[in-house]
């Protein structure tokens, strides 16, 4: 039994390889990009000039952007356009990975610890970058000495552990969902897998929301306060 789709190697050449995780990720990237391109093409035109599906898609996109914008404002981020590409992409990628589980034979890339670790590393790098960009290097470094300098190792450990927690939480949920589904298929292949699939969809969307919300909170912790002061 394979615990991760990383182990399914589709192509390898001199240490370079394309496994199922990477291939699935590329597929999701292509789908997301093409859909975005289609839906945002001639965005300036009124909605009534497009078909119903296109109009609904564009409305959905606008609602999604507005929703994320509102969420970021609620956690204390003011300049939302700066963080929207990063946070929004985290949410869309995790959500798309979960939604695609309805396709037969699909293995979500977020069920791979490598993918969740990559996402967590992105967060781990992006949060200090946003903090430095908003507050400056000195201010960002001084945050690790707060409230007293002796707290420096604990703050560093906190940064690392929360990154690890991000990666493990998403990986555990997505992989656990797949594992449970596989076990149930072997026990009761007729009815329970459908219920568990629906539950998995819900869990995936919740995980996407949690991952993006936590990212927003981490960013707001280092940049939001100063931004609110600016506002």
């Amino acid at each position: 039994m394979q615990l991760s789709s990383d182990q399914t190697v589709l192509w390898a050449w001199h240490g370079l390889k394309i496994n199922l995780t990477i291939a699935t990720t590329w597929g999701l990237m292509i789908v997301l990009t093409v859909l975005s391109r289609l839906l945002t093409h001639n965005m300036a035109r009124p909605l009534s000039h497009d078909g119903r599906i296109m109009a609904h898609g564009r409305s959905l996109l606008e609602w999604l952007v507005s929703f994320m914008d509102e969420q970021m404002r609620e956690v204390g981020l003011a300049d939302t356009e700066r963080y929207l590409p990063f946070v929004g992409t985290v949410f869309l990628f995790v959500a798309a990975s979960s939604l695609a589980t309805i396709l037969p034979g699909y293995e979500p890339p977020t069920a791979s610890l490598s993918t969740t670790a990559a996402l967590a590393i992105c967060v781990l790098v992006a949060v200090p970058l946003f903090g430095i960009r908003v507050r400056g290097v000195g201010a960002w470094l001084r945050e690790y000495l707060q409230p007293v300098p002796i707290m420096l190792p604990f703050n560093i450990i906190s940064e690392l552990t929360r990154t690890l927690a991000l990666a493990m939480r998403l990986f555990g949920n997505m992989m656990g969902d797949g594992m449970i589904l596989g076990i149930l298929l072997s026990i009761a292949p007729l009815f329970f897998p459908v219920v568990m699939k629906l539950l998995g969809l819900l869990t995936g969307m919740v995980q996407a929301y949690i991952f993006s919300i936590l990212t927003m909170v981490y960013i707001a912790a280092v940049a939001g306060e100063r931004e609110m002061e600016k506002v």
């Binding site: 990720t25 490598s114 990559a118 590393i121």
Partner: peptide, 17 residues
């Protein structure tokens, strides 16, 4: 469980996305 090549690839993929 972690394939570092895949991690790097996913990092790049994510940035591209």
């Amino acid at each position: 469980l972690i394939d570092w090549f895949t991690v790097v690839a996913q990092l790049v993929n994510f940035l591209v996305l």
